[in-house]
Amino acid sequence: MPMRGRVVTTLAAMRPGETGEIVAVESPDQAGCRRLFALGLVPGAVVALVQAFPSFVFTVGRTTVAVDAETARIIKVLLLSRPRSPRPGFRQTSSPRPRSRET
């Protein structure tokens, strides 16, 4: 099974329970970008996805934010490892894929 190294993907492609570091916000319009910044979604911030349906819900710092799929797709993240002790209620996939630890 291939190891997933430094995987850069989008918030829309993350699974619940995963964490990632924001590397870029690629909004087509400046306004959308600024608003996401204001919510703390800036490059360098670490996000943890809580759920992906019906909206993407994640925590960033101590804020919980919900966005739609279109917005989730413009947020580029570097996947980090799964949190060691997920909060109860997370949907766990049956076989967690091995993944190298990033910092």
Binding site: G32, R35, L36, L39, S55, V57, T63, T64, V65, A66, V67, D68, E70, T71
Partner: peptide, 11 residues
């Protein structure tokens, strides 16, 4: 264009 959705969810 369609309005993007993003919302802070308070505790």
């Amino acid at each position: 264009r369609a309005a993007p959705f993003f919302l802070e969810v308070p505790p």
